[in-house]
Simulated scan of single mutants.
Amino acid sequence: MLLGCNTYSSNLRNKNISGEEFINRNHKAVDSLTTQMSGKVHKDYPIVISTIVNMNQLSQTSSFGRLLTEQISGRFTQQKYSVVEMKMRNDVLIKDDQGEFLLTRELKDLATSVSSQAVVVGTYAVNGTDVFVNLKVVQPNTNLVLAASSYSIPKTRNMVDMLR
């Protein structure tokens, strides 16, 4: 029985994903969102990207969540969307240097202050072998979900450090 556990553990450690594949999965998710958003969200009006947070503790993120946020923001910019850089704003709630969190009651106020037509929010959840990521594009004045994308990324030893 111990031998079986050892085999499972070593298979998990050998499951790798390159940095390029990690970025490609995040970009593919944004590409899916932008396809769904077609005709609903105009590229000329600002969108806000919220920090991707831990699904089990919505007020916390990690290096992993902040990296996802940066890649998602960058991809929206590459797709020619007007993205508001949240780190440059002073009126965004920042908790414990973990990132920019959009609480539901503040969503409308923030969207109004930057004339945002959409907010991208997301969560991640970790299990033994994968990290699951869920992204949504929300219309701030109605809280309607305009687009959604879910995907998984194999959990690697390097990723474990980023998830702390």
Rank of each mutant, 00 (worst) to 15 (best):
L2H: 10
L3C: 03
C5H: 13
T7Y: 13
T7H: 11
Y8K: 14
S10R: 13
L12W: 09
L12P: 09
R13P: 00
K15W: 07
S18H: 05
S18L: 10
G19R: 08
E21Q: 15
I23K: 15
I23M: 05
N26R: 11
H27K: 15
H27Y: 14
K28C: 03
K28L: 12
A29R: 03
A29L: 07
D31K: 03
T34P: 09
T35S: 15
Q36A: 07
V41T: 02
V41R: 00
H42V: 08
H42R: 10
K43C: 06
D44E: 08
D44A: 08
P46E: 04
I47A: 08
I52C: 05
M55L: 11
L58H: 10
Q60P: 00
T61L: 07
S62P: 03
S63W: 01
R66P: 01
T69W: 03
T69E: 04
T69L: 09
S73Y: 08
G74R: 05
G74D: 12
R75E: 09
Q78F: 07
Q79E: 10
Q79T: 06
Q79V: 00
S82N: 08
V84C: 02
E85I: 03
K87Y: 11
R89P: 04
N90R: 13
V92Y: 11
I94F: 13
K95G: 12
K95F: 12
D96E: 15
D97H: 09
G99Q: 04
A111D: 09
V114L: 14
V114F: 08
S116T: 04
V119L: 01
V120W: 00
V120M: 05
V120G: 01
V120C: 01
V120N: 05
V121T: 11
N127K: 02
N127H: 10
G128V: 06
G128M: 08
N134G: 07
N134Q: 14
L135I: 02
L135M: 14
K136Y: 00
K136G: 00
V137T: 00
V137D: 05
V138W: 02
N141E: 10
N143L: 12
N143D: 07
L144M: 11
L146Q: 08
A147P: 06
S150D: 10
I153M: 13
I153N: 14
P154N: 05
K155H: 04
N158V: 00
N158R: 13
D161N: 15
